[in-house]
Nucleic acid binder design. Structure first.
Lengths: 164, 164, 164, 164
DNA sequence: TTTT
DNA sequence: TTTT
């Protein structure tokens, strides 16, 4: 009925931009969010929280975010589940972001910086990529029970349609 | 660095109150939170989000919350992971709540209501329960790689200490 | 850069629905939000927080909310200011809501209930109402330095255009 | 019943640290938070939102925050009111913060920086300051109807006790 | 000016 | 699998 999340953390890797078969941009990245206390060993741990953005926001995140950068994310928690190929139900929890703030620009973050990051598949080019290799589903999903979803709404695409 | 979640939803089951070997109360329940849109089939889906509370708040939740009741939860996202007995890393995402509001009292919610709900094990009583049966770990965890954690900080307990 | 507020509280009065000269619906109400502690006299105080909604949400709030009802509000803080007729700058702080949840329906809240509540002026009918009476500005504003604002963006209307 | 605010913005001035007569640290500053849209003239406006912190957090804010720095603030909205010396009731809305994150360190923010900022009065030293001058009440309050409050709970102090 |  |  109400579902709101606000996070501030650092990207663990460059964001990955992909496109659905319908051409909708989707970017995934993970935020490392330090916990507000130390563990028994006196060390600060972090939560690694997957974030998904769609459409224009996805393009912008892919263009401006990089590994190590600080970002604020606003969105909602989404829990997907699917049965993996051992017949076990797997739950994937992600933040579907509707607002992302870049808290460090390229010059304020003094790290090695490449050009815009794109996911392996890049812009949708179709082509029967077969079933080998990493098909790039989020959250470690290995199976086609876990298709891309448009803004959280499932979209009906076959495995062959996938751009990765 | 900042990690804040606010949810309003309904409990999918009665809350489960347990105690760590050190006697710390911990209550787990799942909130069903309706999504703010319909899926392609025109149906409203929900996210099922696991919530964990500790200490006094755990006791209060166990006493006042029941299946079907509406509640507001404030807390932070925590992502735990452990390796299951097939050698696969499993991620468990939960809300560690520090504030819970009961939005329906027993009389305003007209459902069948039992007495206070307690988890199978109840107050820690020791007893070598072996390794059979449901050991009650959260998030569908089946294995002892996923011990209880005190307020998110790992606590060092052996399997035999577990009250379930 | 980021501005997010979530409140749960009760309406201190029926909501007031009005229309801008351009016909845009705007509803104002105040939430009483109990503080999470007692004051020195051992009494629970509340904050009285003004909320503004626009367009469709304004209509829905006017239709479904009533004095005493419990509601959850999501939005952003907006601070307006104007100079009153004593030359003093007055600050008005309101929540511009983009999401309102009705946590009590008409039957779960057992209070005297009238029909849909409308502000004094109702649907915009023009008419030179002069300067007598309650001109209905929010936040106690008395002067025309405080015109209605569309979604927070100022709109250019003269005093004579005001429907109240 | 629930009252949560999260802001990211920049300080409009150096923070002001003061002490209550009981020696409790309290720091006030204002965040400029850009609105997520442009006004009719195509310009981005900002909301100027007063923030209050107490105790250890107050000391830390006074030590590490400066004019122009970016900060994230988590807290609750508090609405105080008092009658000014023209017999008019004045409402003061502030964020009582329980969590502040410094999103820019002294070296990442390239601005003129002085030493730690202290409010005019500094550490409470008594001294009959009479009633002349700026007594430093928050939110433009001019009168002693607006005493400091400890964590939002009113504290019983006379005007003469005030350190400013 | 305030809600349960 | 993880960020500063």
């Amino acid at each position: 009925m109400l579902n709101r999340v606000i996070l501030i953390g650092r990207l663990t890797r460059d964001p990955e931009l992909r496109y659905t078969p319908a051409g909708v941009a989707v970017t995934q990245f993970t935020l490392a969010v330090d916990r507000p206390f130390s563990n028994q060993g006196g060390q600060r741990e972090a939560d690694f929280i997957p974030v998904v953005t769609w459409r224009q926001l996805a393009e912008t995140c892919a263009n401006y975010l990089r590994k190590g950068r600080l970002a604020a994310v606003e969105g909602r928690i989404q829990v997907r589940n699917y049965d993996n190929n051992e017949g076990r139900r797997v739950y994937v929890t992600e933040i579907i972001a509707d607002n992302v703030r870049f808290l460090e620009s390229a010059n304020s973050a003094n790290r090695e910086e490449g050009g815009p990051a794109t996911g392996g598949g890049g812009n949708y080019g179709g082509g029967g990529s077969g079933n080998g290799g990493n098909r790039g589903n989020f959250g470690g999903a290995r199976d086609n029970q876990d298709p891309f979803q448009d803004d959280g709404r499932p979209i009906d695409i076959s495995d062959d349609d996938l751009p990765f």
